[in-house]
Amino acid sequence: MSCIYDFSILSTTSLSCIRVSEMSAGTLESLVGQTISVITNDGRIIVGVLRGFDQATNIILDESHERVYSTKIGVQQLVLGLYIIRGDNISVVGEVDEELDASLDLEKLKAHPLKPVVH
């Protein structure tokens, strides 16, 4: 489990880099430490705590799990742990409203999985 400490160092480093050039209005700075929901280009949804990011939108996601949507059964949650997601594969980063999220009955939520992004 020592790798977790390595990554937390990595995340603070990338953060200070971002602060140097705060030009980019699209930074995820305000979301660090928050639970976020990431939609990847292949249509997966990964929820976890944002630990760090960089200019390329590469992100470090802690305590993450995937939410798998289907029309037959409710949302299945797969535990993933610590993930680094490459920015090129990220479509959307959403801030999860914890209260709203707790009020969702994921087991009853049915929907098609999201389609992959087609460029």
Binding site: S37, I39, N41, V92, L100, A111
Partner: peptide, 18 residues
Amino acid sequence: DNFPHMLSVRNCFIRGSV
């Protein structure tokens, strides 16, 4: 109805390329 995947998301960041 068809896209409940972001029901608990109120603020988001969208990558320009998508």
